[in-house]
Design a protein around this nucleic acid. Structure first.
Length: 617
RNA sequence: GGGCGCGUGGCGCAAUGGCAGCGCAGUUGACUUUUAAUCAAUUGGUUGCAGGUUCGAGUCCUGCCGCGCUCACCA
């Protein structure tokens, strides 16, 4: 329930006064002959005063009255323009609304008049008629700008509290123009990707987000349930298996841009839901995918920023092809100065890494491939790959959908034969130390694929919800014949980060995922305290009563004996009852038991539970 | 989940354990070419929540809530 603060009460009062004066606060229509930018442009082409009549609309961003003349800036999406407001031109009645500030900064207005240049030289609308389009009841944070002679703009009193900005993104956008620009570039990025892939002759498709079986990546999924079908469904963690089925169906190349969901931690480069781009193209291998990748990134950067050279976090990055390409084996040789093929088992590799101080944070039971990819590449090399770099030829056990690398299995020595047998045609690419995507020559041998599923199951059994489950239908599709093909997947959000120079994924998502906000001051008091106590004991109903009391006392040190005793009584009840335990309204503590709940501070107050719930809902 | 940091009027920020302050915004008034307008006066805070220590807590301690950074997790 909205409790207007002082500023809001003042605006409500103004709204009442405007309505009393016959002003419509939220009229249904308006008239707009020019956007702000168009109005300025129209004046530029013919600077004759009084000849360019415009009707512009927008939000007031600055308003200052100088007695019988006032100045305002209004802003629409195209830009800002100044309104020149004179008593003479507007008339007593209309001008009074401005002078008495019944029209506020943040209100939406329509201004009609002729274009002019003020004495100070600023192009303005000499306003003959000012109409309110929408009255603002809550003021936005105030940000003042100063334009310097060199054209730069400095801001005073920014709106920068990250939590409020994310939770109230509308206010963030309304106030911070640079934030609006990020999401314009985001839209342009996605459009450029579509254009590029369409021009490559790929077909855009849409595949299920709710999947009966998840797969295509190693990540924990979200689970949901279809009531009528009595079926559990997973939110997809990748599109891979559904897209590749379509190659069986006869399309040469398909792509999808959409949302994936992974039930993992969040970070500056991870969000629980994120936008993925995947494509699969028949009759090319991963070398062909590398070529497309390089061209796609360069094209998109040019479309969005006008150049394939970009600046990110102060570093110039050149996205133009060709990128540096090296195998992960070469990368380890180059950056860590040893050949991991000299240690072809996880035990031998671990011992070498431990002896050379490279084993920090490494699990000795991890698989050989994970040690190389997750640990050596992820923890020691990745951060040093600043300019676009393709790292290719990954160990087989971390690449369940990639085809084995080519080569003459009979040539070379034992080490080389082992290398060929244990590596796949897969690559990842990195820009500014961040993994940007993943691709392979796709496995299309159904017998091999089945073996990989089984192998994965064995390797990841204890971590079962991250296993790629065996997908029989996918194997069936492959048995009908899948053309050789190359596939690609990339996080679009990270690409937007690069192109907009943002260092957190949350800044390129309109509504990043946050925890439930803290209860407002209007919410029931005391909730934190009791929630804490309940959380500590609610899963421990089998504890002896004395132990419960002890723990409650621990978490409610200030509570009197009565609270502890009645809480303990409640805790002996059912789990459901316990979870329904809620307390405190009107600033006083209550504890609920079977049918009644009790006023804790002094005497017992009996009240039916139904009444209790009615009173707080 | 661990570690570190932060939370003070609408926004941005101060305040050795000792009267909660400043700027912007707001309100009232002056001003017919301002643009971070200016000038004069002025309103507004239970310092995230609940406790503790203390003569005295925004500050110290405990728990909780939220956010940020970081580590872990995350092909």
């Amino acid at each position: 329930m909205w409790q207007p603060n002082k500023l809001e009460k003042e605006r409500l009062e103004k709204a009442n006064r405007l309505e009393a004066a016959g002003v419509l606060l939220y009229p249904g229509r308006c008239q707009r002959t020019h956007t702000v930018a168009e109005a300025i442009e129209a004046f530029h082409s013919d600077e004759a005063p009084g000849s360019t009549y415009v009707s512009v609309v927008g939000r007031i961003r600055r308003l200052n009255s100088k007695g019988k003349v006032s100045f305002a800036h209004i802003e629409d999406e195209s830009g800002r323009v100044q309104l020149f407001l004179r008593l003479n031109a507007l008339g007593e009645e209309s001008y009074e609304l401005v002078r008495r500030k019944l029209i506020d900064v943040d209100d939406f207005v329509q201004a009609s008049g002729t274009m002019m240049r003020t004495r100070a030289g600023e192009i303005s609308v000499d306003t003959a008629k000012l109409t309110l389009l929408s009255k603002t009841l809550s003021p936005l944070p105030v940000v003042k700008e100063q334009r310097h002679e060199d054209g730069s703009v400095s801001e005073y009193g920014e709106f920068k509290d990250t939590e409020t900005r994310y939770r109230q993104r509308y206010a963030d956008l309304a106030v911070n123009k640079s934030v609006r620009e990020v999401f314009i570039k985001r839209a342009r990025t996605i459009k450029a990707l579509r254009d590029f892939l369409d021009n490559e002759g790929m077909l855009e498709v849409e595949t299920p987000i709710l999947q009966p079986l998840y797969g295509g990546a190693a990540a924990r999924p979200f689970v949901t349930h279809h009531n009528q079908l009595h079926q559990d469904l997973y939110l997809r963690i990748s599109f891979e298996l559904y897209l590749k089925r379509l190659l069986v169906g006869g399309y040469d190349a398909v792509y999808e841009i959409g949302r994936d969901f992974r039930n993992e931690g969040v970070s500056y480069k991870h969000n629980t839901e994120f936008t993925m781009l995947e494509f699969y193209k028949a009759y090319i291998d991963y070398e062909g995918v590398m070529d497309i990748t390089e061209r796609m990134f360069a094209y998109t950067a040019e479309q969005v920023n006008g150049s394939s050279r970009i600046r990110y976090q102060g570093v110039e990055l050149n996205l133009a092809p060709p990128w540096k390409r090296l195998s992960i084996r070469e990368a380890v040789q180059a950056y860590l100065d040893f050949d991991y093929m000299d240690f072809p088992s996880s035990e031998a590799l671990y011992e070498y890494l431990r002896a050379h101080g490279l084993a920090d944070g490494l699990d000795r039971d991890d698989t050989w491939g994970r040690m190389i990819v997750e640990h050596l590449l992820g923890n020691h090399i990745e951060e040093r790959l600043i300019q676009p770099t393709i790292v290719k030829d990954y160990p087989r056990d971390v690449s369940p959908f990639a085809k084995r690398i080519r080569g003459d299995a009979d040539a070379g020595d034992e080490k080389e034969r082992l290398y060929l047998a244990s590596h796949t045609e897969r690559f990842e690419f990195f820009i500014h130390g961040m993994e940007m995507g993943n691709a392979f020559t796709e496995l299309n041998d159904p017998r091999d694929q089945q073996a990989r599923f089984v192998e994965m199951k064995r390797l990841y059994d204890e971590d079962s919800d991250e296993t790629t489950p065996l997908d029989e239908d996918y194997l069936r599709a492959m048995r009908f014949g899948m053309p050789p093909n190359g596939g690609f997947g990339s996080g679009v959000d990270r690409m937007v980060m690069l192109l907009t120079d943002q260092d957190s994924i949350r800044d390129v998502l309109l509504y990043p995922h946050l925890r439930e906000p803290a209860p407002s001051e209007n919410d029931l008091r005391g909730q934190f305290m009791l929630d804490a106590a309940v959380r500590q004991v609610e899963y421990q109903l089998d504890l002896p009563l004395a132990e419960k009391k002890r723990r409650i006392a621990l978490y409610l040190p200030q509570a009197n004996a009565g609270i502890e005793f009645r809480m303990a009584n409640a805790l002996e009840g059912s789990l459901a009852q316990l979870q329904n335990l809620r307390v405190a309204f009107a600033g006083e503590l209550f504890v609920m038991t079977d049918e009644n709940f009790y006023h804790v501070e002094d005497e017992l107050i009996e009240m039916r539970i139904a009444d209790f719930w009615r009173s707080i809902t």
